[in-house]
Design a binder for these strands. Structure first.
Length: 284
DNA sequence: CTTGTACCCTGACCGC
DNA sequence: TGCGGTCAGGGTACAA
């Protein structure tokens, strides 16, 4: 499901209603909700009674600082990290949403204002874990730059790509090289940059790296403005779909005419995942 | 170190 | 109606 624009949309929806709220009660529906081998009992004990700070996002992770004091100042006691993976969803309200796409409860957090934060996940691939600030820092340091922030420079991107022989598409999906890009936006960015997804990353010219960087940023920003892409499961916190699926140029459009040159869009498999591209617009 | 593959899980869809 | 195969926005463990 969610890549950077979708996760960021969810973060924006959750930040205000959670800030400063105390967690009164925790319900975990199954063991595999807690990632990383710690027990659900430990998880529940470390969440109950704490206060939310400001919700953050890094790569495709949602980060919920949990504080011991109501003022939620200073470093949090724990950071609750959520990976939505393919089908995780959040909702917040007095009762669980009564909709067909919210029938696989994963976790409920009852808040001190009568609202409950609901997490639902059909495929159960997503989950939660708790990190101390120092542990999070170690994880953080292994992630690539945020594409929409200033740290994502042409020079830095060129240095990352230069030694790699893997196809550029695969590299865009690798969170330790660049954070937040997933399968949809990788194909879309390469189309916008006019670069063949099979090209070895290190073979891109400086000019092509610059074009790709611009394309990645442009497509993520455009998707963010449309509250993300809903293919199937993704919903914002209020249950609304995104609308960027209406603006995709290649993703999911196998055999349909390229919007630029009418050539049928090609689908191929790279690293076990579908890549969509235009063999005419994206060639040297 | 880099790279590729299998796997986690459920549900939708397609051809027979 | 049912059955088997394929595919889906992600990430990790493991092998080569």
């Amino acid at each position: 499901m969610p890549e950077l624009p979708e996760v960021e949309t969810i973060r924006r929806d959750l930040a205000a209603p959670l800030l400063g709220r105390r967690i009164e009660r925790v319900r975990v529906y199954h063991d595999d909700l807690v990632l990383g081998g710690s027990s659900r009992q430990t998880f529940q004990r470390n969440v109950r009674g704490r206060y939310f700070g400001t919700v953050a996002r890094r790569a495709k992770y949602l980060l919920f600082p949990l504080h011991d004091d109501a003022s939620h100042q200073g470093p949090p006691a724990r950071i609750m990290r959520v990976q939505l993976r393919m089908s995780g969803q959040f909702a917040i309200g007095p009762t669980r949403p009564d909709t067909d796409d919210f029938r696989h409860p994963g976790l409920d957090l009852r808040l001190d204002d009568g609202q409950t934060l609901f997490y639902d996940d059909v495929r159960r691939l997503g989950g939660f874990d708790l990190l101390r600030p120092s542990e999070w820092l170690a994880v953080e340091n292994r992630l690539g730059p945020e594409p929409l922030e200033n740290g994502f420079t042409v020079a830095g991107f060129r240095a990352v790509l230069a030694p790699l022989r893997a196809p550029i598409k695969n590299v865009l999906l690798d969170q330790k090289r660049l954070a937040g890009v997933g399968n949809i936006y990788a194909s879309e960015a390469l189309f916008r940059a006019g670069i063949d997804p099979r090209r070895p990353a290190g073979s891109l010219s400086s000019e092509e790296v610059g074009r790709l960087r611009r394309a990645v940023r442009a497509v993520l920003r455009a998707a963010l403005r449309k509250a993300g892409t809903t293919i199937k499961d993704y919903r914002a916190v209020n249950g609304q779909s995104g609308s960027f699926q209406n603006e995709l140029r290649v993703y999911g459009r196998e055999d349909a005419p390229c919007r630029t040159c009418e050539t049928p869009v090609t689908r191929l498999v790279q690293a076990g995942r579908s890549t969509f591209f235009c063999s005419r617009c994206q060639s040297d």
